[in-house]
Protein backbone atom coordinates (compact mmCIF):
# COMPACT_ATOMS: atom_id res chain seq x y z
CA UNK A 1 0.00 0.00 0.00
CA UNK A 2 1.57 3.25 -1.14
CA UNK A 3 0.56 6.08 1.11
CA UNK A 4 1.67 9.58 0.22
CA UNK A 5 -0.64 11.48 2.51
CA UNK A 6 1.11 14.13 4.59
CA UNK A 7 1.89 13.26 8.20
CA UNK A 8 0.82 15.94 10.62
CA UNK A 9 2.09 14.26 13.75
CA UNK A 10 5.85 14.70 13.57
CA UNK A 11 7.00 13.03 16.78
CA UNK A 12 10.50 14.40 16.27
CA UNK A 13 9.27 17.88 17.17
CA UNK A 14 7.10 16.91 20.14
CA UNK A 15 8.45 16.99 23.68
CA UNK A 16 7.46 13.69 25.26
CA UNK A 17 5.32 13.77 28.42
CA UNK A 18 6.12 11.18 31.11
CA UNK A 19 3.44 8.65 30.00
CA UNK A 20 4.98 8.67 26.49
CA UNK A 21 8.47 8.07 27.92
CA UNK A 22 7.05 5.27 30.11
CA UNK A 23 5.45 3.75 27.00
CA UNK A 24 8.54 3.83 24.77
CA UNK A 25 10.63 2.43 27.64
CA UNK A 26 8.15 -0.47 27.87
CA UNK A 27 8.85 -1.20 24.20
CA UNK A 28 12.62 -0.84 24.51
CA UNK A 29 12.67 -3.14 27.56
CA UNK A 30 10.61 -5.66 25.58
CA UNK A 31 13.13 -5.70 22.73
CA UNK A 32 15.98 -6.05 25.27
CA UNK A 33 14.17 -9.03 26.82
CA UNK A 34 13.70 -10.64 23.39
CA UNK A 35 17.51 -10.93 23.28
CA UNK A 36 17.90 -11.35 27.07
CA UNK A 37 15.84 -14.54 27.08
CA UNK A 38 18.64 -16.12 25.03
CA UNK A 39 21.08 -15.32 27.85
CA UNK A 40 18.62 -16.62 30.48
CA UNK A 41 18.15 -19.89 28.56
CA UNK A 42 21.92 -20.28 28.24
CA UNK A 43 22.18 -19.85 32.02
CA UNK A 44 19.34 -22.31 32.66
CA UNK A 45 21.06 -24.82 30.39
CA UNK A 46 24.42 -24.44 32.15
CA UNK A 47 22.85 -24.52 35.61
CA UNK A 48 21.00 -27.79 34.99
CA UNK A 49 23.47 -29.72 32.82
CA UNK A 50 25.82 -30.94 35.57
CA UNK A 51 27.43 -30.02 38.89
CA UNK A 52 30.57 -28.98 36.99
CA UNK A 53 28.74 -26.66 34.59
CA UNK A 54 26.70 -25.26 37.52
CA UNK A 55 29.93 -24.38 39.37
CA UNK A 56 31.45 -22.94 36.22
CA UNK A 57 28.38 -20.73 35.66
CA UNK A 58 28.50 -19.52 39.28
CA UNK A 59 32.13 -18.46 38.90
CA UNK A 60 31.44 -16.83 35.50
CA UNK A 61 28.67 -14.78 37.13
CA UNK A 62 31.16 -13.34 39.64
CA UNK A 63 32.79 -11.16 36.98
CA UNK A 64 31.70 -7.48 36.96
CA UNK A 65 30.74 -7.64 33.26
CA UNK A 66 28.49 -10.67 33.83
CA UNK A 67 26.86 -8.93 36.81
CA UNK A 68 26.24 -5.84 34.69
CA UNK A 69 24.60 -7.93 31.94
CA UNK A 70 22.41 -9.78 34.48
CA UNK A 71 21.44 -6.52 36.15
CA UNK A 72 20.51 -5.08 32.75
CA UNK A 73 18.29 -8.05 31.92
CA UNK A 74 16.71 -8.05 35.39
CA UNK A 75 16.13 -4.29 35.13
CA UNK A 76 14.39 -4.72 31.76
CA UNK A 77 12.32 -7.56 33.23
CA UNK A 78 11.29 -5.49 36.27
CA UNK A 79 10.36 -2.42 34.22
CA UNK A 80 8.52 -4.46 31.57
CA UNK A 81 6.57 -6.32 34.30
CA UNK A 82 5.55 -3.18 36.23
CA UNK A 83 4.55 -1.34 33.04
CA UNK A 84 2.67 -4.48 31.95
CA UNK A 85 0.77 -4.65 35.24
CA UNK A 86 -0.16 -0.99 34.73
CA UNK A 87 -1.56 -1.96 31.32
CA UNK A 88 -3.65 -4.76 32.85
CA UNK A 89 -5.01 -2.39 35.50
CA UNK A 90 -5.88 0.18 32.81
CA UNK A 91 -7.56 -2.59 30.77
CA UNK A 92 -9.96 -2.95 33.70
CA UNK A 93 -10.90 0.69 33.22
CA UNK A 94 -8.87 2.08 36.13
CA UNK A 95 -6.83 5.25 35.61
CA UNK A 96 -7.87 6.02 32.05
CA UNK A 97 -8.20 9.77 32.55
CA UNK A 98 -5.37 12.22 31.82
CA UNK A 99 -4.58 12.50 35.54
CA UNK A 100 -4.83 8.72 35.92
CA UNK A 101 -2.43 8.16 33.03
CA UNK A 102 0.10 10.59 34.50
CA UNK A 103 -0.17 9.02 37.97
CA UNK A 104 0.16 5.54 36.46
CA UNK A 105 3.32 6.54 34.60
CA UNK A 106 4.79 8.11 37.77
CA UNK A 107 4.02 4.98 39.81
CA UNK A 108 5.48 2.74 37.07
CA UNK A 109 8.74 4.69 36.94
CA UNK A 110 8.93 5.08 40.75
CA UNK A 111 8.21 1.45 41.68
CA UNK A 112 10.51 0.14 38.92
CA UNK A 113 13.37 2.40 39.99
CA UNK A 114 13.16 1.17 43.60
CA UNK A 115 12.99 -2.50 42.55
CA UNK A 116 15.84 -2.10 40.02
CA UNK A 117 18.07 -0.53 42.71
CA UNK A 118 17.18 -3.35 45.13
CA UNK A 119 18.00 -5.92 42.42
CA UNK A 120 21.35 -4.21 41.84
CA UNK A 121 22.14 -4.35 45.57
CA UNK A 122 21.24 -8.05 45.60
CA UNK A 123 23.43 -8.81 42.58
CA UNK A 124 26.49 -7.00 44.01
Amino acid sequence: MSDNRPVNLDIGTISFPLPAIASITHRISGVILFVGVGVLLWMLDASLASQASFDELMSTLQSPLAKLVIWGIVAALIYHSIAGIKHLIMDMGVGETLEGGQLGAKLTVGISTVLIILAGLWIW
Binding site: S2, D3, R27, G30, V31, F34, V37
Partner: peptide, 20 residues
Amino acid sequence: LFAHAWVGMWSVVTDYLTER
Protein backbone atom coordinates in the same frame (compact mmCIF):
# COMPACT_ATOMS: atom_id res chain seq x y z
CA LEU B 1 6.86 -16.10 25.28
CA PHE B 2 6.53 -17.21 21.65
CA ALA B 3 3.08 -15.61 21.38
CA HIS B 4 3.91 -12.57 23.54
CA ALA B 5 7.11 -11.67 21.70
CA TRP B 6 5.56 -12.34 18.29
CA VAL B 7 2.80 -9.80 19.03
CA GLY B 8 5.26 -7.41 20.68
CA MET B 9 7.91 -7.49 17.96
CA TRP B 10 5.16 -7.24 15.33
CA SER B 11 3.92 -4.05 17.01
CA VAL B 12 7.42 -2.60 17.04
CA VAL B 13 8.41 -3.43 13.45
CA THR B 14 5.08 -2.37 11.93
CA ASP B 15 5.47 0.99 13.71
CA TYR B 16 9.10 1.74 12.87
CA LEU B 17 10.09 -0.34 9.83
CA THR B 18 7.61 1.47 7.62
CA GLU B 19 7.92 3.05 4.18
CA ARG B 20 7.69 6.49 5.75
